[in-house]
Simulated scan of single mutants.
Amino acid sequence: MRSIRWTVGTGLLPTALIGGTVAVTLAWRSRLPESLPNSGGVGDRPVVATIGVDTLAGVLLGAALAVWAVGLLVFASTRRHSGAGRHWLRLGAQVAVNAFAAAAATALLMLFAAALDAPTAADVRLSWSYLVAVTVLPMVAAVLFGLLAYLLAGTAPPASAGGGPAVPAPAAVAGPGAPERAAEAGPVLAAGADERLVWWEIRPLRLMLWTIGALALTGVLMAAVLVPLVGVTGWAGAAPTVTALAMLPFTSYRLTIDGEAVRVAVGPLRRRVPISAIAAAEPDHLALEDWLLRSIVRGANAPDVPLLPGPALALRLTDGSRRLVTCRDVPTAVAMVNTLRARRA
């Protein structure tokens, strides 16, 4: 099953993107002029210089093929690796290939669509709003196909026993500098009433990191290709890189549990559940498809956001509602919340 996912994500999906763009370009070729504006031609500005339709198609599609070839090389070179390392290398290549191919295909087809049935380059007129769309929509396509490539990769394989150094799990802390407690805890922690319990957890969001990397690479490559060809307006191709910089604050997930509240945050998205409002805590698991449905339907206004798929700490509130909180060591977190809640009862 995993090999099928890699075949679809690294082979069939880029083939569909690049091959579909080639097919549409060939079907439109008879309706396109010999050249397109590469300086001017936006709003009421006259066309100053032009670029050949075949040249533009060759550059953008050639760049997509080159990125794909690099991705296949990375994929093949990871055969010497094993486990999670190989998974993340292949995932990064797969996301980058599909994001760049989607951006290049969208930009090319939108430029061609604006020139359909125009006799010459001078007759091709772009509105400023269409120019903005040509800048933004390739970025959106890159994000969507990058996300699809990420989902096709699936989860990393579990680490084999003895295959690497053990990573210590987050633990409850009794006061500053106190030793970590064992992860295997019961329904409550064996802590004295005068002990201060604090839990914190910070983890990188790999999906966001790979998306940012794909966007940054897409913007740099598009600007490097378009600026020499179309002049100053080619810097619009750097928009994905600017977007990647704006997404940097969303690259980590933070969870804090103390005597006052359970707090979760991803960048500016923050949620707080007071301990006094919690009736009980229990373990749960949020499937990937359920997480996607929550995110699409409810968005950032959902009380569970920010939330990631996988093991979750379920909080049953005194008003009858239920909240989910992403957590690595759910059993210990459950015991800690129940202990803190019992103290306030």
Rank of each mutant, 00 (worst) to 15 (best):
T318Q: 06
M247C: 12
L17Y: 02
V297R: 13
T233G: 12
R343F: 06
W235G: 04
G41F: 07
L36M: 13
P309R: 05
P204T: 13
A69N: 01
G41Y: 10
P176Y: 02
S82G: 11
D284A: 15
L26C: 01
L229M: 14
R294H: 03
V134S: 13
V167R: 14
R323Q: 09
A216K: 08
V95H: 00
L91G: 12
R196T: 15
G320F: 03
G231N: 12
A115Q: 09
D44W: 07
A300M: 07
Y253S: 03
G162N: 02
A214C: 03
M336H: 07
L245Y: 05
L148T: 10
L307A: 07
P170R: 09
V136S: 09
L229N: 01
R343D: 05
T155Q: 15
M1R: 13
A161F: 09
A312P: 06
A93E: 02
L36W: 13
V188D: 12
A185W: 12
L292A: 01
R341G: 00
G310N: 03
V42C: 07
A223S: 10
S77Q: 08
V24L: 15
P309T: 00
P331Q: 10
A76T: 10
V227M: 09
A153L: 02
G164V: 12
A214M: 01
L108D: 05
A153S: 12
L313D: 10
V325C: 03
G259E: 13
R322S: 12
A261H: 10
E195D: 14
R86M: 10
V42Q: 04
T326A: 15
M110N: 07
D284R: 03
R196D: 15
A23P: 02
P274E: 11
